[in-house]
Simulated assay, not measured.
Amino acid sequence: MAFILKSDRKETENKTVRFPLDLIHRIEEAITGKDVTFSGFVIQACEFALENMEKDKK
């Protein structure tokens, strides 16, 4: 299954998360020119990871 960026907006809560600088740069490169924020990318990446982890459990 491919990871596809979406520009969805949802109700949110703030959380502080530290990222390695190289990962920040890679994410910023990936979203350049796309209609998605850094936070939106992270949320979608986490959802994608969780959905695929659940599939692997079964």
Rank of each mutant, 00 (worst) to 15 (best):
A2G: 08
I24N: 03
F19I: 04
V17E: 06
E13P: 00
R9W: 03
G40R: 03
K10C: 09
E13R: 14
F38T: 05
V42D: 00
K57R: 14
E29V: 04
L5H: 01
K58A: 15
V42C: 12
T37D: 07
L5A: 05
F3Q: 07
N52C: 06
M53P: 00
T37I: 03
L5W: 00
A2E: 13
T32Y: 06
K55F: 02
F3A: 11
A2Q: 10
T16V: 12
H25A: 13
E11H: 11
F19R: 06
T12P: 04
C46A: 14
E11W: 08
C46P: 00
S7N: 15
E28Y: 01
R9F: 06
I4E: 13
S39E: 11
D22E: 15
K58D: 14
A49G: 09
I24H: 03
V42M: 10
A49W: 09
E47T: 04
G40V: 02
I4S: 06
M1N: 10
R18K: 12
G33F: 09
N14V: 08
E13Y: 11
F38P: 03
V42P: 00
I27G: 03
E47S: 07
E51L: 12
K10S: 13
F41S: 01
K34M: 06
D8G: 08
E51G: 09
L21Q: 15
V42G: 00
Q44D: 05
P20H: 13
G40P: 00
A2M: 09
K34W: 02
T12V: 13
L21C: 05
H25N: 14
V36R: 04
N14Y: 07
F48R: 03
I43P: 00
H25C: 07
E29A: 14
R26A: 15
D35S: 12
M1K: 12
L21R: 14
A2F: 07
E13V: 15
K34G: 01
I27F: 02
F38S: 08
L50M: 11
E28S: 07
F19A: 08
F19M: 08
V17H: 06
G33M: 10
K58V: 10
V17I: 15
R26C: 04
I4W: 01
I43L: 13
D35R: 13
L21I: 12
R9S: 11
E29M: 08
T32C: 03
T37M: 07
L50C: 07
R9V: 11
F41K: 01
S7Y: 03
F19D: 06
K6I: 00
E13K: 15
N14G: 09
D35I: 03
L5F: 02
E28L: 07
K10V: 14
P20D: 15
A49L: 13
E28G: 02
